[in-house]
């Protein structure tokens, strides 16, 4: 992943990973259209509970993440079996990173920006009770750290690939390929951070250090979702629930 003499510091792989990024506006439009259609199917008086609405948003965002993965360089070379194993392993991390990325751009401590463009005051979240509000706070803390680092889109694109191509996933048919992608992306991110942010000591390390935090928070979110599902509070028959069960089966 070495940069060309014409453009030192910009590994072509980094540009290629960014080019795989979805069109945010398109994704937003699709999800808003889906929610409007869903709402119009309900009676005016039948207002969905906030949490189930969040679940529908997360479900629709997950669809867009699967679409993104399918179109990604390297990923499309894998067999469907391996694609499924990688996505089963990291779907909640990608969902969380998508949320955190949005908060980094949003740049406000007192409110959350949803994928629909709606803003939710954090005080309403704290009304939801400890598990959810403490997870949201942890998410806000992660977003704050990445904001302080002024993480850019290229770095975010690399982090997404590092999460997706996890060579530790079990039963991979082509584990070597996944490992080689992980190494290439690591090398490209390192080179990019060294050249683009020379003044920032160990920027690469500071970015990579966020990944276990994303993993741990996403695991907590999965447990919470599982609990809510057992309470019958999560709309069923959707991708979210399928992915939740896939990991636990």
């Amino acid at each position: 992943p070495h940069s060309s003499p014409m453009n030192p510091g910009m590994p072509p792989l980094v540009l290629e990973l960014v080019s795989c990024d979805p069109d945010e506006e398109q994704v937003r439009g699709k999800i808003c259209a889906y929610l409007h259609q869903e709402q119009s199917g309900r009676g005016k008086l039948d207002k969905p509970r906030p949490f189930s609405l969040l679940c529908v948003m997360a479900d629709q965002t997950l669809f867009s993440i699967v679409e993104w993965a399918r179109s990604c360089v390297f990923f499309k070379e894998l067999k469907v079996g391996d694609q499924m194993r990688l996505l089963h392993n990291c779907w909640s991390e990608l969902l969380l990173l998508d949320h955190i990325c949005r908060q980094v751009h949003h740049g406000r401590d007192s409110s959350l920006l949803l994928i629909t463009g709606q803003e939710v005051d954090l005080s309403t979240v704290s009304d939801a009770g400890p598990p959810l509000s403490s997870m949201v706070q942890r998410g806000q803390e992660l977003a704050r750290r990445l904001q302080l680092l002024q993480v850019d889109r290229r770095e975010m694109a690399c982090l997404k690939f590092l999460i997706l191509f996890n060579p530790n996933v079990k039963l991979l048919e082509n584990q070597q390929f996944v490992e080689s992608v992980q190494e290439q992306v690591n090398g490209a991110l390192l080179e990019y951070t060294l050249y683009s942010y020379p003044q920032c000591l160990d920027r690469f390390g500071q970015l990579i250090l966020r990944l276990p935090e994303v993993r741990s928070l996403s695991a907590q979110a999965e447990d919470y979702l599982c609990y809510k599902h057992l309470c019958g509070e999560v709309p069923c028959n959707n991708l979210l629930i399928e992915m939740l069960h896939a990991k636990r089966s």
Binding site: F63, V66, E67, R70, V80, Q83, M84, L87, H88, N238, L239, E242, M243, H245, A246, S249
Partner: peptide, 20 residues
């Protein structure tokens, strides 16, 4: 529902043919 393969939706999404 029991008969449905547990990861049917993801499998469908990854396999679907967009050209149609």
């Amino acid at each position: 529902k029991e008969g449905k393969k547990p990861q049917a939706l993801l499998h469908y999404l990854l396999n679907k043919d967009d050209s149609k």
